[in-house]
Design a protein around this nucleic acid. Structure first.
Ligand SMILES: [Mn+2]
Ligand SMILES: [Mn+2]
Ligand SMILES: [Mn+2]
Ligand SMILES: [Mn+2]
Lengths: 219, 219
DNA sequence: AAATATTTTTAGAGTAGTCTAAAATATGTC
DNA sequence: GACATATTTTAGACTACTCTAAAAATATTT
């Protein structure tokens, strides 16, 4: 139905718009997709003609309802494939994204719905991100970053904001994974770094920035 | 590594060469892939420059060792995805091919090897075609077409030569699937059509042509 | 509000894949 | 072996995606 490039652009716009409320700029899309701004302008014109986005020259873009639906369905496919790769094939969480980036473009509603069933209708992917259901609805939940916790409090990791491979490998080294208990032992008043205890066994110091990427629920 | 179109051309050449021993003609590739002969000539030049095929103008092509390896690995991926779709997701055998045709081009050796392991190293796909192992080796077995059987003999279906969707749907209607017992009741001397008994329960008349597509082992 | 810096678009070009129509080559038949 | 037929290649064109460099518009600073 839509090309890989069209889909990736719509997804990029959706994800950028999630964070910043205003219209999405050409440069931000180009940065997200690692392409030249001129290429983004071309694609924007195409998507605008197809009425998948609203576009005013020099003023950025927003998704139309149809464009938004396509983006959400793509995210759904991406995250379901990630679950498959991690849970069924045993890929580590730092390597599922790359493969899902390709698999997500295989075009078949039936395929993705059967995959979802096979996986038992998971609500979250291997990074703790919510998986839209067939109607595009996300299952949200209350969550904090561990940086908000006070010394003595314990959280259970339910997601990560940062998806960078090296960040995930760093968490692996510290024995931190989804479901891990993380107890805040001490907060440094100078730079807000935290001394934490993982699963009651491994003690580590994490920077404020790292702490902000770790999404937890109360233990 | 290679584009979808390059891979599909190599696979087409491999499959056509399997049946006819001589060099593969431009027109046969075009017919196989449903494209214009002129498009095939263009691709042939490209593949020839990359030394994936041997090409003499007007004389057809043959695969080089590297081209052959790529084709076999693509067939491996195709058939493993078909097994996944049929066995794990519950797709019927007449609809797995179309989806596998897209999934096969997702480029990752690690993915396909883990998929193979997940599926327990199947040796045959849902149509009974052999799945090359990681080294490109096919597991062959002795097989007959049911047309070769005499009245009174019984075969077990282990494969189909014809993969056309309508043919497979026709077999479904007759309750014929892989593993089905097929007993030859009578052979018509005029047109070689057969009266057969499926699983000891369903009686049907099949034409000579249909019988030739049904690959069986002795019961 | 002018000067400067940043962002975005346009212009022009290149790769890849596909097509139709016409020309070149090969093949089969008398 | 010539002629008619079939096959294959070439020529030229189109779509899709991407890029760099330059021009245009917008935003920021003084
Ligand atoms: Mn993608
Ligand atoms: Mn994810
Ligand atoms: Mn294919
Ligand atoms: Mn098959």
């Amino acid at each position: 139905m839509y090309t890989t490039s069209e889909e990736d652009h719509l997804k990029a716009i959706f994800k950028i718009a999630e964070k910043e409320k205003k219209a999405v700029s050409t440069n931000s899309i180009a940065a997200f997709l690692n392409t030249a701004p001129a290429s983004v302008t071309d694609m924007i014109k195409k998507l605008s003609e197809k009425e998948l986005i609203l576009y005013q020259k020099y003023k950025g873009v927003t998704l139309s309802p149809i464009g938004s639906k396509i983006a959400i369905q793509l995210i759904r496919k991406h995250r379901l494939w990630e679950v498959f790769l991690a849970e069924k094939l045993g890929f580590p969480w730092e390597s599922v994204h790359e493969l899902a980036e390709k698999l997500e473009h295989v075009d078949s509603d039936e395929l993705i719905n059967k995959l979802e069933e096979f996986l038992n209708f998971p609500k979250y992917d291997p990074h703790g991100d919510p998986i839209p259901n067939v109607d595009g609805k996300f299952t949200l939940r209350t969550q904090w970053s561990i940086a908000e916790f006070l010394p003595g409090q314990t959280g259970v990791l339910i997601g990560v904001k940062e998806h960078d491979k090296n960040f995930l490998l760093y968490l692996n080294d510290m024995q931190i994974k989804l479901g891990s208990q993380i107890k805040v032992l001490h907060k440094n008043n100078y730079d807000q770094s935290l001394r934490v205890l993982i699963e009651g066994r491994f003690e580590n110091l994490i920077t404020k920035n790292v702490a902000q990427q770790l999404l937890v629920k109360k233990a």
